[in-house]
């Protein structure tokens, strides 16, 4: 009886919780499109270099954001500390990249 009860209680919860592959496939398609766009911008090569650089960085950031949110589950609940952990790394990286670009290329 109790086992049955537990199984019954499990049933609706299970159905609600299991996510399908749909949003992950959408994330894949978005990543693919952004990748193709990035290659296309360079291959067609009609626009100014600084504009291309900015576009490439922007598209890479968007793609990474999508992948981390959906594939690495960062948008899910209970990810406050993971976000703090990875963001602390990102802040340091951001500082270093700005420094490298500023010192060498400005």
């Amino acid at each position: 009886m109790t086992a049955e009860h537990a199984a019954a209680a499990e049933q609706p919860k299970k159905r609600v919780k299991h996510e399908g592959p749909k949003k992950h496939i959408i994330a894949y398609i978005f990543s693919l499109v952004l990748t193709i766009l990035a290659f296309a911008v360079v291959v067609t090569g009609e626009v100014r270099a600084s504009f291309v650089y900015a576009m490439l960085v922007l598209m890479a950031c968007v793609q990474v954001f999508i992948q981390m949110a959906f594939w690495m589950h960062m948008k899910d609940r209970g990810h406050t500390f993971p976000i703090i952990g990875i963001l602390s790394g990102v802040v340091i990286v951001f500082t270093m990249i700005i420094m490298a670009v500023y010192w060498t290329w400005w």
Binding site: I86, G89, I92, V93
Partner: peptide, 11 residues
Amino acid sequence: LFLGGETVLFG
């Protein structure tokens, strides 16, 4: 947290 450190390494 390890991935945060990895981010710095690659950065």
